[in-house]
């Protein structure tokens, strides 16, 4: 492929720049070693802190650059690549700035926020580097609208077939379609929990009550219909039931792909729900940190 991942962007030029920054910061830090107590208050500490603050502001500017669509200031990919590497370097720069002096104060609060942002960023890098492949493999050339179209078409065909079947089957199949759960709340999307149901009722002869029963992964409805096959009242029903089982299995397969797609996409996006709000909070905490530093100078 001619495409370049953001980690390898331009031979990972920002990796080298980030490493250079890190070496520089360590060197700067070491100049206070032995003589002065390393802290954020030495001139080296001020320089490290200024670098860190500028880095944070610049890293946050990715959000602006990303939306400055007509901007010709580098590509967003370049920015993101630099964002990843320089963001990682920030972890070291800020730690050196703090010189390991932590406490229950706004300064450490900002530091912890920054660490959380960077760590969530690491999660994001991993997610961006690996999940798209899994999504792509799961799609097998299609995309989500196509999967839903296929599911929708299967629903229609199943409903048409169900109409021709006896009432219990019809109710079971129709209800299994209507009560198919896809996605849902956060946990359901992330862990693919399936709360599908269907209405199970007896045949006309047994006459048992209709009950709402679980239908995880559509297996129960398949079993239910398959169980009817050898007990079919009329020979004419058999081909129809065969067909039904076949379509239900196809539907199961499509549903699995959809659920996996939802799950993967949810994981792909989840980190941003941590990264972005924390980044914003970090910016504010950074301002407070600087403000209070000079408030009680």
């Amino acid at each position: 492929m001619i495409h370049e991942s953001l980690l390898k962007y331009r031979n990972a030029r920002f990796l080298w720049q980030a490493l250079a920054l890190m070496v520089l910061s360590i060197g700067l830090y070491l100049t206070q070693g032995g003589v002065r107590v390393p802290s954020g208050g030495t001139w080296q500490g001020y320089i490290l802190g200024t670098i860190g603050a500028l880095l944070i502001v610049w890293l946050a500017l990715l959000g602006v650059r990303k939306r400055a669509y007509a901007s010709s200031l580098g590509t967003v990919q370049g920015w993101t690549s630099a964002h990843v590497y320089l963001g990682s370097a920030l972890l070291l720069v800020a730690t050196l700035h703090s010189a390991g002096q932590f406490g229950w104060n706004v300064h450490t609060f900002a530091y912890v926020l920054m660490c959380l942002v960077i760590l969530s960023g690491f999660v994001g890098v991993y997610a961006y580097a690996s999940i798209p492949q899994w999504i792509s493999e799961n799609h097998a050339g299609g995309n989500r609208p196509e999967l839903f179209s296929e599911l929708f078409a299967l629903n229609r065909q199943l409903q048409l077939l169900a109409v021709k079947s006896e009432a219990a089957i019809q109710l079971a199949v129709t209800s299994s379609i209507e009560r198919t759960a896809i996605g849902g709340d956060v946990a359901a999307q992330l862990f693919g929990r399936d709360r599908s149901r269907f209405i199970r009722s007896g045949t006309a002869s047994s006459g048992s009550e209709a009950v709402l029963s679980g239908n995880e992964d559509q297996q129960q409805i398949i079993d239910f219909v398959a169980a009817r096959l050898p007990r079919a009242d009329k020979a004419a029903e058999v081909p129809n039931l065969h067909e039904l089982v076949l379509f239900l299995c196809r539907r199961q397969s499509v549903l699995r792909r959809i659920r996996r797609d939802i799950r993967l996409r949810a994981w792909l996006q989840l980190w941003l729900y941590v990264h972005v709000p924390l980044s914003v909070a970090l910016l504010v905490a950074l301002v407070v940190h600087i403000l209070t530093t000079f408030m009680y100078w």
Binding site: P145, F152, Q189, I262, V276
Partner: peptide
């Protein structure tokens, strides 16, 4: 068929997760 997907919550954006309010 495209409306069919709309019947489900298939994206984290449709859940209670919010970036802006959290921020």
């Amino acid at each position: 068929p495209s409306e069919y997907e709309g019947a489900f919550q298939t994206d984290l954006r449709q859940t209670w997760l919010r970036k802006r309010p959290a921020a």
